[in-house]
Amino acid sequence: MMNATALHDIALIVAFVAIGIAQIMAMIRLVIGPDTGDRILALDTMVVNAIGLIVLLGIAQGTQVFFEAALIIAMLGFVSTVAYARFVLRGDIIE
């Protein structure tokens, strides 16, 4: 049976690598596109992955200081997704 701390460290590295690869794949979808809806979706996914990376950084360093950053990025990500979609739908954000 593997030591609990060693397994925890391996899990942290695996999670960092997996979310980094996920972020790169979402960025490829953001670049290739083909339509505006896909680009908005890719940006939304990138925001969610960024929250995951910040949470992982907080676990790795054993601090709680990254919690506010993750919460603010979650709020900004939702508002920017809705604003972008609304701009495409209506041609204006606040009417």
Binding site: A11, A15, A26, L41, T45
Partner: peptide
Amino acid sequence: TYFVAACLFVGAAFALVGSIGLL
């Protein structure tokens, strides 16, 4: 600690699968 490691594996797997699907 084991539970944290298991949760990290599950979260990483779902994030990876979701982005593979997006691509």
